[in-house]
Each structure stands twice: as structure tokens, then as C-alpha cells.
Write a protein that binds this DNA or RNA. Structure first.
Lengths: 110, 110
DNA sequence: TATCGTTATATCTTTGCAAATATAACGGTG
DNA sequence: CACCGTTATATTTGCAAAGATATAACGATA
């Protein structure tokens, strides 16, 4: 009949912390090792990606990524252990939500 | 720590059917008896309200509202029994979701 | 110290959505 | 048949978010 859809995100005191788009970006950073490459792999402008990471860092209690500029290779961006933990937690939440929403669809059976 | 937030909506084959804003509008129509008054009570432009109702009707299987134009009082808009049922179902879903999200917040305790 | 690819930031342009405005059509009532 | 408040719809305006472009700063390495 009708399909239940949802979108989830986490908010801290200083605004939105993590959402689905930010998680996707963080995962791309994890595999690419740099913010610019991650943005490119997602067909996202570097500026937008930078803004997202900036917002994450400002709303997070601990650092989510470590950025280095200059040096051999130009630098890069790495996801911290804390960041990796948050990614795992968020994906587990998403999975649980998905299962919950499925269980709720019988509400609209008529 | 971080607060889990979510947004839920229902999709049919022809696009979005019901969301939180649309439910709010339908409830205002229920109490006001007209689309223009409902829009005014929500500080929403008539056009936006009309577009929402139009989208609801296009994506719904059965009529959600009945609209009459002209006549004494100018006409009005009424929510059908089917529409009232859907409102109830959606609000129950929302309540269940809220409880579920609360139960999930321990995922992020560290 | 020249090079390189990255992060960082400013500025301008575009574009898509929201809001505002205007006007027509409707039809029961007095 | 004039009036009224509603639904219905087109057009214009405004603005904020997104995108494009350009440029500076960084620092390990050779």
C-alpha cells in the first residue's frame, strides 16, 4: 500500500552532528584518505564537502577527522577512531530503524 | 549526549502521500472547515496549502478531503472519514517512532 | 628552494524554491 | 441578480542555498 520512509540524524547542542549524507562523506574519506578525493568520488563539490566536515567538527565533542595540509602528497584527511565508532553506531541505528519501520507498516494495512 | 531526531513520511506510487506538515495541515482543516482558514491559522500561504492538498489527493488511493466552491459561506474543505483514519494511523506511527528512537539513544552513550 | 596535491577561504553566479500578488470561477442566499 | 468568501490558477518577485571559479597557505621531499 503505502511505504514508510524515514530520515534520521543526530543533533548536539551546537547543531546537527551526523546525518546520512555526512556519514556517506566520512566513509568516502575513510577509503580515499583525503577530503578532495572523497568529494570527487561522491560527485560533490569540494566546498560543500568542506562545509559538511566543518559543521561536523563544530558540533562534535571529540575530533571526528584529523586534517593535515602540506607535506609530501599535499596532506590529507583521516577519520579518527572516535569517528569510526560513530559511523558504526549510526549505521547500526539505521539498520534498527529500517527493521522497526518495516514492523510498523502493518499500521496502514487498510 | 547527542539527540536522535527523525522525520517520517508515507510514499505511494505517485509520490509522497503524507508527512508531518501535511498531517498538521489536515488537522487544521478538520478544525477550521476551510483550506484558506487552515492555511491562515498555520501562517502558511494559501498557495502552499493548496499545493500540499493537491499533492495529497494525487497520491492517495481514496479521497482525503472533499472540497466545495461557491455557495453560502463561499464553500469549504472537509476531511473525509478515510482522511481522519489516516491521520490517526500516522499519529500512532509517530508516537511509536518517538518511543523507539528514545530506546535507541543508548547506542550513543559513549 | 622548487614542486606538488592538499586544505582553506573569498567572491561571484546561478538556480530553484518560497512568497507575494492578482484574478477568475463558483454557487447558495437574500 | 448582486454579494460574499471560498477554491483555483497564473504570474511575478525575492531570496537563500548551491555551484562555479579563483587563489592563498601549507610543509615534507628531493
Amino acid at each position: 500500500m503505502y511505504q514508510i520512509k524515514s530520515r534520521i540524524w543526530l543533533e548536539g547542542e551546537k547543531g546537527i552532528f551526523l546525518g546520512e549524507g555526512r556519514i556517506q562523506l566520512l566513509k568516502a574519506i575513510e577509503t580515499e584518505g583525503s577530503l578532495s578525493k572523497a568529494a570527487k568520488s561522491l560527485n560533490m563539490s569540494y566546498k560543500k564537502a568542506w562545509n559538511l566536515i566543518d559543521a561536523i567538527n563544530k558540533s562534535s565533542i571529540k575530533p571526528i577527522v584529523t586534517k593535515s595540509t602540506g607535506g609530501n602528497g599535499g596532506g590529507g584527511t583521516l577519520v579518527t577512531d572516535y569517528g569510526k565508532l560513530k559511523i558504526k553506531q549510526f549505521e547500526l541505528l539505521k539498520k534498527n530503524c529500517w527493521e522497526f519501520m518495516n514492523s510498523q507498516s502493518e499500521l496502514f494495512k487498510d
